[in-house]
Amino acid sequence: MDQFNKYLDVSAEVKAALEEGKPVVALESTIISHGMPYPQNVETALQVEQIIRDNGAVPATIAIIKGRLKVGISPNEIDYLGKKGLEVAKASRRDVPILTAAKADGATTVATTMILAAMAGIKVFATGGIGGVHRGAEVTMDISADLEELGMTPVMVVCAGAKSILDLGLTLEYLETKGVPVIGYQTKTLPAFYTRDSEFHVDYRMDTPKEIAEAWTAKLELGLKGGMLVTNPIPKEYAMESSYINKCIEEAIEEAEEKGIKGKETTPFLLAKIKEITGGESLDSNIQLVFNNAKLAAQIAGEMCK
């Protein structure tokens, strides 16, 4: 890890937990700066950290602050990112060296959170939903860097499936090509973020955190490169009706096309538009599924340490 010390700051709490073999769960920061308005973004981030603690693990929220790669940030730093909001750059793999050199701030996406977690030695990461292959990608080539990262970085990602604004079938095909196992927690159906199911199936169903921890440990010990994707359906009481949410998504995609929105602007635009169409209901669902994923990730990390 020495070559990273020039750029990387691991908090004292996270460092001690890793050295003592205690469970640690990584968390991303785009959800703070780009996911929701202030102060709800900060309250949610702190609540997610608390859920991880309540389930016996140490949270490590990851971000780039003034050019430093931070693994484990303080409540004050979370508040700083929340207040700055969209002024903070959305940092994917390609942005890391630029932001570091410029001593700038960056909110880490799934891909970048995986990279920094791996640098620090963290193996489990909880998020809301991963990026994937966008609808129409056979023409636009719009494929999230999250999938590429899952194909090469040894971090398990616990999520509520791929965001339902994506082409779920092509996303699964891409993950298969990259050799990434897709696990359904207590389900064989791929959850679709706001809804508990889709027309697609995961590779394997596993019913306990212990089972998932054993499969992930085996992958790491075999030296097989890349991560593992654990898809955890949104709790029933917060799930949205699939025909309703799909109609909202179609409407949002249509508007994005009309406005010529492309690339890294697509996901934030669509999520904000869906929130508007659903009268805020989609944001409530989003928060609850993140809480649910944090709990499962902490339980898996705990089983791995046993």
Rank of each mutant, 00 (worst) to 15 (best):
S92F: 04
I249F: 00
G223M: 13
Y238I: 09
T171Y: 02
V202W: 01
D142F: 00
P23S: 02
I130P: 00
T30P: 12
G169I: 10
V14N: 07
T187M: 11
M228R: 08
G161L: 06
D146N: 04
K295M: 14
H201L: 10
A107R: 01
S74A: 07
D9V: 12
A102I: 10
T113Q: 02
I31W: 06
A91G: 08
L46D: 01
I73W: 09
S29G: 09
D79E: 13
I122S: 01
I65G: 02
P181M: 12
L224M: 10
R68F: 03
I249H: 06
A298Q: 09
Q186D: 12
P209K: 14
T278A: 14
K70V: 01
L224K: 12
V10K: 15
I130T: 01
A104Y: 03
G223S: 04
Y7F: 13
E176S: 15
A301I: 01
A12R: 14
S33G: 08
T266E: 05
E255N: 10
N246Y: 07
I261G: 01
T153E: 03
D9P: 08
L147A: 03
W216G: 02
D197V: 14
A272K: 15
K264T: 11
Y174H: 13
N246K: 15
L229W: 01
D146P: 00
S243V: 15
D2H: 13
E199T: 06
L190V: 03
N76S: 12
A17L: 08
A137Y: 02
I253S: 01
A107G: 02
L229S: 00
L18A: 04
G179D: 12
L222A: 12
E149Y: 08
Y7D: 12
V202Q: 02
E87L: 12
D284Q: 11
I245A: 02
T266Y: 04
V110Y: 06
K103Y: 10
C248Q: 15
A63K: 06
N5S: 13
A16R: 15
T177W: 13
M1Y: 12
